[in-house]
Design a protein around this nucleic acid. Structure first.
Lengths: 360, 360
DNA sequence: AGACGTGGTCGAATCGATTCGACTCTTGCT
DNA sequence: AGCAAGAGTCGAATCGATTCGACCACGTCT
């Protein structure tokens, strides 16, 4: 009849229980834990002792976050599959930078995906702020949801949106430098291997079509930069930044008579893939083919090459995002940041072999 | 004097405001949103309309999680630096598996590190459950904290602890198979390149010391497996699973007269590094040196080799962890799972060259 | 026709802490 | 000795939703 056992320890202890055992009020107990406000050393000791007795280890984060209006969680919204997102070393560097800057003090990074509907967590997770990274596909849906939730947003290299702090990279200018480098070397027949441009995510030829508004913002910007120099440049649209995709694209572009003398890859992973494909086809780098990448990822497996590329400050981008978030949470209004990439001349680019001397 | 503007929209709307506008009670409004409980279609429509008017987009996750006692967040505890953790493709596969299985339905993965003190978030984050992965260094501290918080734990390849569900891999048996393979080929002078064994994280020689209790559980298990076949095997302790570390270890072990004829690397990344080092030293694989890895990671850059290794079901491990967590959250008591690795015979192992024919 | 079940709605308690304002008891100063 | 300042403590409201039990009205079964 009487609930004996259940009375003993029905639930985990809460602050009220600790306060009761310590013989103080709940408010005092709270003060003793949070450290804010004046509490005598003796009282604090009593409370802590009571907590130890009851095996209570600090306030419930759920209650705390309800009251404070803060959860200590920063969302990182990435492309649909974690596997794909993590394949790209740039994203990892980014995460590392964010964690480095904003990760201290009980803040955690919550991995989210923007694969549409509300099941992504983006609509229901207790978030203090969000970093949108590489999630251009459904940017507007995500932004709309988060805006309604009044959650501060920082976007890495995305189309600008009101209320979304932009952390940018000079993708267009960088690609222009890359293209100009090839032109300066004397190349005229240049192809591009681009990152995914539209939602379809199918690899396909890239015609000299105008760079319309697609969803792959970074890809489009880099394409525009290349077209600033080679207006009609075409090539191949990959379906992701990976070495395998680079190989596939390389085979497509190189395995025929009228092949280009240089290829601009929109990422170092793709560039390495292109180099592999070239090697498979018996082409020598940079003698028969110049290859230029983007990112400066220092990928294992490029040896003996030193890839010509644009080095971008990926970790710094992450850090900037982290700092911006911290400032948002402190009530400030952080400024947008634009980073620049730096041209690195490696040994994978060279003047084109004269057409007459080409062995074919 | 009168607070006009602040009265207009001082805060974000809450359920009470919506209910008031819709002319129903808060409880009914809640029912209308959650879908649980009987609500007439007309009422639901009214509530939804009111919500739309007020720009209210569903219940506050903080309040919901306080009431329900669930946050919808699963913690993933990794080594101190995200960068290091993500370098290893096994960890990524693991994450992918976890997300795949448990990621649906508004659940998110919170990245945490176990770098000691409470600032890691492990002590204060609103977690429903936790997966401990590759965090053997401070396992006991982490477990102690989480146990007190009564948070279900799943550990991937860690020493068994009461209250922590184990997802295991036959590291010892797998390594034994690898070692036996080399012995069967006729190797007698075999060295090992191990994953980090102790907290120090300094790479160092591995003497034939007994495999004492260190903190690198997986490393120790794999070492024990090798020693089941070659009891006195020594080698080099790396300070992380990466190609660079493998190269460094390879140089250490191979760049002298009395070099081993075979090397057991405790990960594929390390194995690839060892192969690179061997190439740099002018050794041919598998002619002059046999190399065997662990993981089955199919790393880019191994070509033209097909690495002999033990293929482990990394994504499946993640899936199992995800399922276990789901079962924990459903109130069940999931069972421990043990996975097995499968030997893959590639072309990086061969019988040792007869000592007499060795060019040196 | 009266009792019973039930779909629909509401009130009120609850989750567990934080925090503001008020109150009490020292202590120091004149 | 009387009074002000302030350290220390407490009560109560609050954060925003969920949920249990009560209640009402209406249709159905016997």
């Amino acid at each position: 009849m009487e609930k004996l056992a259940s009375d003993a320890r029905p639930t985990r202890p809460n602050l009220a229980a600790v306060a009761a055992l310590a013989g103080v009020s709940v408010s005092t107990a709270s003060l003793a834990f949070s450290g804010a406000g004046p509490v005598s050393a003796a009282t604090r000791a009593k409370v802590l002792a009571a907590a130890a007795t009851l095996d209570y280890d600090g306030p419930d984060p759920r209650a705390r976050s309800l009251r404070r209006g803060r959860s200590g969680i920063i969302g990182v919204v990435m492309e649909d599959r974690l596997r794909d997102a993590f394949r790209d070393p740039m994203n990892i560097a980014l995460l590392d930078g964010i964690a480095d800057e904003a990760g201290g003090g009980g803040v955690g990074l919550l991995l989210l995906t923007d694969n549409g509907a509300g099941d992504s967590g983006i609509a229901v997770a207790p978030l203090d702020a969000v970093v949108l990274v590489g999630c251009s596909r459904r940017l507007d849906e995500s932004v709309a949801i988060l805006r309604r939730r009044a959650i501060p947003m920082v976007a890495i290299e995305a189309e600008h949106r009101a209320g979304v702090l932009a952390i940018d990279l000079d993708n267009r200018a960088g690609s222009r430098v890359a293209a100009q480098h090839l032109r300066d070397l004397g190349h005229t027949h240049v192809a591009i291997v681009s990152l995914p441009i539209d939602d379809s995510r199918r690899s396909r030829p890239l015609r000299a079509e105008p760079a319309t508004a697609g969803t792959g913002f970074t890809a489009l910007e880099r394409l525009r930069g290349a077209r600033d120099v080679f207006p009609a440049i075409g090539g191949w649209v990959s379906n992701g930044s990976s070495i395998e995709e680079g190989v596939a694209a390389g085979i497509e572009l190189l395995d025929h008579e009228n092949r280009p003398t240089a290829i601009i890859a929109q990422s170092d992973l793709l560039a390495v893939g292109v180099i592999r494909a070239a090697e498979q086809l018996g082409l020598r780098i940079p003698h028969d083919l110049s290859v230029i990448g983007f990112d400066g990822a220092r990928i294992d497996g490029v040896a003996p090459y030193d890839l010509t590329t644009l080095v971008q400050p990926a970790v710094e981008k992450g850090r900037a995002a982290g700092r911006a978030i911290l400032e948002f949470l402190a009530g400030g209004t952080p400024q947008a940041v634009a980073f620049t990439s730096e041209f690195h001349a490696g040994n994978t680019t060279a003047p084109p072999m004269a057409a007459s001397t080409r062995a074919n």
